[in-house]
Design a protein around this nucleic acid. Sequence first.
DNA 1: CCAGGGGTCCTTTTT
DNA 2: GGACCCCTGG
Length: 740
Amino acid sequence: MREVPWLRGLNPEQRTAVMHTDGPLLVLAGAGSGKTKTLVHRVVHLVRGHKVEPSRILVVTFTNKAADEMRERVRAFAGDDAAAVIVSTFHSLGVRILRWHGEKLGLPRRFAIYAAADQLGALRQATEEIHISDDRFDLKRVLAQISHWKTRRVTPDEARDEVAEQGGAGTRADEYAVLAADAYGRYEDTLRACGAVDFDDLLLLPVKLLEQDEEVRRDVWRRWHYLMVDEYQDTNAVQLHMTRLLAGARRNVCVVGDDDQSIYAFRGADVGNILEFEHHFEGTAVIRLEQNYRSTKRILEVANAVISGNPHRHPKRLRTDNPIGAPVLLYEHADDAAEAERVAAEISVRRFRERRAWRDFAVLYRANTQARPLEEVFRAKAIPYRVVGGTSFFDRKEVADALAYLRVMVHPRDEIALRRIINVPTRGIGRTTVTRVADKGRADGMPFAKALGAVSDDDVGAAQASSVREFLDLLETRRHALKAAEQAARRPPPATGLPPIARWALDLFRGVGLEDMIRGDRRMNNAEARIGNLRDLAGTLARYERKRWAEVADRMEDGGAAALVLTPEFARGDAGAPGDDGDDDAWRPPTLSDALARLALADLDDPDADPDDADADVVTLMTLHSAKGLEFDDVFLVGLEEGILPHARSIDDGESDALAEERRLLYVGITRAKRRLTLSRCRSRRRGGDIVEVLPSRYIEEVPDGLLEFRPEESVLSAEESKDLRENFFKNMKEMLDDG
DNA sequence: CCAGGGGTCCTTTTT
DNA sequence: GGACCCCTGG
């Protein structure tokens, strides 16, 4: 075979995977085996080797980060002619399909996408109607149950039957199931009434469309001829069906994944999908990538030892030609403060001694709350760091409020958002008034938004009614201003200053009194930071607007003016709502509605993750879940205790599946490390009010002696290290300066 | 009826 | 640190 550039640098298995382009293909790719690389080269092979039209190739990922990376690498390797390859997350793909065909399900053209807080609001409303007091039930748990049904494609009726069959009753769990089954249907009704869908719907509804409607199927089959799915082990039942439907009769489907890295069962992922792939797609070819290019031998040995304790795996054993590397350390600390101290000290010392950069280090933990002690110490020691995930920027109260304002602007009947802001800042419309209006509306068969407009002095009292009217006027005025801003946004933004929509948003936040409200809140000492968050939100809109216009510039450069396709409405200049309609990938000017949809899918930058510091020189702190797919030179895994990893909830569940998943989580963490791995655990931990002794994680206990180097903690720095640091301080410093 | 203060409880993982 | 409840004063 002639040597072609896109096959260079691949091992025989990877080559086979790249060249197998007809019929179903399952690539079982171990951690660090060049999985992404293989996918990228496969895309390139299709485009360059088989002359496949790039836009006929669809690559599906789970996260936007993964999609971005894939897009970037395809482009870097195959050049701009491959830029038209569609790389999308399952959820964004769902949005596309719903935009094109959602009307067939009675979905409005502009539908809102509800995330955690909104879903909870919708559920609260739904359960209020059936008079179930919240205080006896944790609505989050109910929501989790509903979501679980949805990911398994169980309808409300089926859920009720399922619960009735199990019958048992009496136990707490059953009570929840009964409530959840009851609430499920009402929750769905509430969403539809709000013109909204939740995250599960973004998968569920497109599948429904594809199943029911021949026209929709033909449309997607016409668009995409080659399908690739990354991280296939994380697919749920709905995603399996979507994969099948998208693959269609062509069955040019290639899925890549690692059953040992399946860590999302809690949200419905089913490892069975990858284990049974050969049964779901007859005639599947299977390729294993077992050569690891990432980690040292020692790290890989520990990883293999940990994961081998799990039953039901696709048997495989990763091997590597990498050097044996430094010993894997296991520290034991008095508590999490000492642990954090040690991690910080180690990082400082190693960076110094081994001349690493801050960005070479990552600290991984099971739960977001574990970040706090680390943050405290890092701040005290002036170690630059970044916390990934956690309480998202968008979950902060002031940001959520501001966002609700934006949503009400675009979706006037979004009851959840409406209720959130109707008295924020306080304007004399209290709980009682809201309840009365809602009840009256329900009695008259009116949606909440309409009931508000129809409010009369008799219903709620003159003062309240007038406040409501004032509030509605306020919204109307702002909506007017938005129209003007979106009109202005049809032209390229000025080089400096805020683009029109962002400017309008900032005006809105000020004008409705959100800023004053924050300033006036004595309980909060960080008022300015929170006002800064509002600015950042506007900044996100500004970046969005600029990015859209930058795309125009790209298209102009790439293919001349012809590449800039505008929707007919836009070209005519009379589109009422550019950005939402049209069923092609034509460029459209920025709109608030489009920005919000992207925001909901986390498709826009989190302002916390400043674009500038995406590759800033900082230590990364994140959960094991967030770490999947990433790699770092030097990795710390903290809190390896019973109750943390495995998490107490997984232990309580008593299900071995949950414990197997916790083990995989540890496996994922271990295999993130390239050069060095440091494990640690604490002897005691705060639980509730008091401090309790905790046991080491069972998974660590299982690792054979000799693979780990045990370090009982005495002082933060060992005597030897302190001495070394003192004596060599100036020498090291000088070397560093010489280097820079 | 509304606003604001003070107390209490919990806190897995995420598109 | 936050979400939520209850209480008090206007």
